[in-house]
Design a protein around this nucleic acid. Structure first.
Lengths: 211, 211
DNA sequence: ACCGAATCTGACCAGTCGGTCAAGATTCTG
DNA sequence: CAGAATCTTGACCGACTGGTCAGATTCGGT
């Protein structure tokens, strides 16, 4: 994944506008569902401009994905450190993930759609960086378990479950709305969601209440 | 959603073959990512044949969706009945959902992709039948809580979480594989997954162990 | 002010896709 | 077995999409 060479400010402005528009458009319909002309319209630029900066639709899509993944790695995962009591750490992690899902639902959906396709472009990331992060966080979980601060669990699966639950409120938001009979999720709904997910994780892992 | 009129056996054979092929092809790439020619090749029939039976791509897609949704409603949800002890009921429900996700990952992915798109075709189902089912199951949960058999929870959110966790093993299977460093999920992996999800749900909801 | 590089853009193109159609093959029915 | 109804199919088509390109415009340095 390579970004175009750095130069003038016009380049930065245009690429930023294009990337933002692309994220919006790719968020509904994924790669195949998006139209270059639609992205161009969303960005308020002629279509040829997108090709000037990104060459092909796939390169633009890769750039959007890279941006999402980078933003993701920068956040959240440093809640899981051995010094912190697990109740605080896990609750914080869940809250951070849930907040992220709310703040950038489009990003979450693009990621989800890509994994659904079989993650042809994300494989290196999943098998590399993400795997290493999970291994590191798993070691912390095992440390807590060994010190009797929580039950013995399958750490990786706990993370899969946390991701699944938190992302469901972004990716499947419409389903949640429809089933609850809302036209949009209220703050109370999201508070209930946070309470439920946190409870399942903390009590589910037998985390001792902080003293 | 209407199916073609019932007549000869050729019709039944062809439509069955087409529906099966369509489920396979729609499972990767969703509606937009699928090509009618690809479905035809998968079914071993000329493309014009698909149009003879289903008219348009969208009608074929609707037929596939309807089939998935129907199969879904027929299964699983009758675990959640007040007579059963919650430990057994919830564990059974989780196991059934997980087994379904394993048995027909394609169906799960198609549903997920559709909801990701904003569920334009599933809205009536989500707001109607599914909502009613969730309300009924929520009443059972509340009944159990009121009788001190489990904690007081937000029932609907518990179901969202269960769905999220169980479906993640179908929809995000490649992510799970990649992070675990497997080339496919072993029976042991799935057993660990089941144990983790079940533990989170049962302990997370404070379900009393059956006596 | 000047010039080369960078940026922008409308017009255009070739390939692909969903869908059509008319003619032939097969099956059903009286 | 005749003829109607159903089914099958290759060839074809218009619309749309990603991508190209040459010329116009703007920008940055001197």
């Amino acid at each position: 994944m390579d970004s175009p060479p750095e130069t003038g400010t016009a380049r930065r402005d245009s690429t930023a506008a294009i990337l933002a528009a692309a994220e919006t458009v790719f968020a509904r319909g994924g790669f195949e569902g998006a139209r270059m002309s639609e992205i161009a319209a969303e960005a308020g630029l002629p279509k040829a401009n997108l090709h000037y900066y990104f060459g092909t639709k796939e390169r633009l899509y890769r750039a959007v994905l890279e941006r999402i993944v980078t933003a993701w790695l920068d956040a959240a995962s440093d809640w899981i450190v051995p010094e912190r009591p697990p109740a605080e750490a896990l609750a914080g992690y869940v809250r951070a993930k849930l907040a992220d899902a709310q703040a950038r639902p489009g990003a979450s959906r693009i990621f989800a759609a890509e994994v659904l396709r079989g993650a042809p472009l994300l494989m290196p990331f999943l098998q590399g960086e993400l795997r290493r992060r999970v291994q590191a966080m798993s070691a912390v979980i095992e440390h807590w378990s060994a010190h009797g601060l929580m039950d013995t669990v399958h750490p990786a699966h706990v993370f899969f479950c946390i991701w699944a639950m938190t992302q469901t409120y972004a990716d499947f938001g419409v389903q949640v709305q429809a089933v609850l009979g809302r036209d949009r999720l209220s703050a109370q709904d999201m508070a209930d969601a946070a309470a439920t997910v946190t409870a399942l994780v903390l009590k589910g892992c037998g985390v001792r209440a902080a003293m």
